[in-house]
Design a binder for these strands. Structure first.
Length: 255
DNA sequence: ATGGTTGCTTAGCAA
């Protein structure tokens, strides 16, 4: 079984790369973020023709998440449904038998003093609350997406320069730690304990050519599913060439 | 040389 997560930064701009990636890597599940389109504009027919089903929570212009899957989902939930007024499409959950797959696009936060940063920390707290109220750590759950948090120094090209950024700050890392403490394992880091690797490079300032990346896209899994992971890797090649997303897909393979 | 981008929507915002 293969699962991947990929912030495509506009599915329309990434259409050809998206379908080529599906065909090349044949994931059973692909969690997408930043679709930047409504459900009505999702390429339902082309996805079906490629042999996949899709669960989509769209939004015009911004955000938007989906789970593309080889088999259709048994249940789908759009948004955390926790009573909080949240107009942004950043959460979708789907069940496939006893496996729960969630695709998340955690708010970036913009700058530490911007209200968006409080929204980010609160959003991560709400995500923990969602898991605590709907699931048990003993279940098989994969929470995949763009977390906009680099967990540690191995995940950051310039840790000293970027220590105060919204992707690296201690309170952002603490919010991610708190989420993981519910019962989630960073599967890439579990499988590659000492590997320096990144999943996002800023379009600005020649981030990719200069190697200025961060690992902010994660596949988090509960213990029972994480124990079955055979390997995890980042498809850095997908960041190369013409019109790439600024994020590379992160992939986990299970025995 | 001290900047260097992209996408959505149309001049400004978001990342």
């Amino acid at each position: 079984m293969r699962i991947a997560t990929w912030n495509v930064n506009s599915l329309r701009s990434r259409n050809d790369r998206f379908f080529a990636w599906l065909e090349r890597h044949e994931p059973d599940y692909l969690c997408l973020q930043e679709l930047k389109l409504t459900e009505a504009l999702f390429p339902w027919d082309a996805v079906k023709a490629a042999g996949y089903a899709a669960s989509v929570f769209g939004q015009k212009t911004y955000n938007g998440v989906a789970i593309v899957s080889a088999a259709p989902a048994d249940d789908i939930r759009l948004g955390m449904g926790d009573g909080v007024e949240d107009p942004e499409a950043r959460f979708i959950a789907a069940r496939f038998g006893d496996l729960h797959v969630i695709s998340v696009y955690v708010p970036n936060g913009r700058t530490p003093d911007h209200p968006a940063y409080g929204y980010k920390l609160e959003w991560l707290r709400r995500l923990r609350g969602y898991l605590a109220s709907h699931h048990k750590p003993s279940e098989k759950i994969l929470v995949c997406g763009d977390y906009n948090v680099a967990p540690g120094e191995l995940d950051v090209a310039r840790p000293d320069e970027w220590a105060a950024s919204v992707l690296c700050r201690a309170d952002a890392r603490a919010a991610l730690d708190d989420l993981r403490s519910w019962g989630l394992v960073d599967i890439f880091r579990q499988r590659n304990p000492d590997l320096r690797a990144y999943s996002w490079w800023d379009y600005r300032m020649l981030g990719f050519p200069k190697g200025n990346g961060l690992r902010i896209d994660h596949i988090l899994g509960t213990a029972s599913i994480a124990a079955a992971a055979a390997g995890a890797w980042i498809d850095r090649d997908e960041r190369k060439g013409k019109k790439p997303s600024d994020h590379a897909p992160v992939v986990a393979d299970f025995g």
